[in-house]
């Protein structure tokens, strides 16, 4: 595991430990890809990829809405349910999503999330620089993986 990956987990774990009632933290990028996630309890059966995709999309859609209403930058989206809450905060190129119980200190969660989001934004920049998306800069290993996938698809 690279240093940046460990940093994601550390920051996400710190968020969980910061306040009682936080069940899960997910870091997702703005294309909907789940980058890292940490749960309070080892057994918490959720489809993280699906939750992450929605969290990112909802946050980005709110952001679009904000743009058309000219109300400035979006910091946090809060969704309140009968039995819990979901928070999503912008974290640079990503979105930090926090899932909690119903009764929580919202003020504290907001503060913790904003602090963590600033840290995550930095680490995320490093992480994305580490994994360039440009086609030209691929390693031999990556090419090998793409060829293997191609072979797999031909089979089907």
């Amino acid at each position: 595991m690279s240093i940046t990956v460990r940093q994601f987990d550390e920051i996400l774990s710190d968020v969980i430990k910061s306040e009682p009632g936080i069940k899960k933290t997910i870091l997702v990028d703005r294309t909907g890809l789940t980058i890292a996630h940490v749960s309070k309890f080892s057994y918490y059966p959720v489809d993280v990829d699906g939750i992450g995709a929605i969290a990112s999309a909802v946050f980005c859609a709110s952001e679009e809405q904000g743009k058309s209403l000219d109300v400035g930058d979006l910091t946090i989206v809060t969704s309140e349910f009968g039995d819990g809450k979901i928070f999503a905060a912008g974290a640079g190129k990503g979105v930090l999503c926090v899932i909690t119980d119903k009764e929580v200190n919202i003020g504290m969660i907001r503060l913790t999330m904003m602090k963590a989001a600033a840290e995550l934004a930095k680490v995320l920049d490093e992480f994305m620089a580490e994994k360039p998306a440009v086609a030209a800069g691929k390693t031999d290993a990556e090419r090998e993986e793409l060829r293997a996938a191609l072979g797999e698809l031909e089979k089907g």
Partner: peptide
């Protein structure tokens, strides 16, 4: 829930104090 209802301090200080004190009260 740690969300300020009323305050005579600036918004940022109010948010921080409300959150921290509510957490302490719990």
């Amino acid at each position: 829930e740690g969300l300020p209802i009323s305050s005579n301090l600036n918004a940022e200080t109010t948010e921080v104090i409300s959150a921290l004190v509510t957490s302490l009260v719990g």
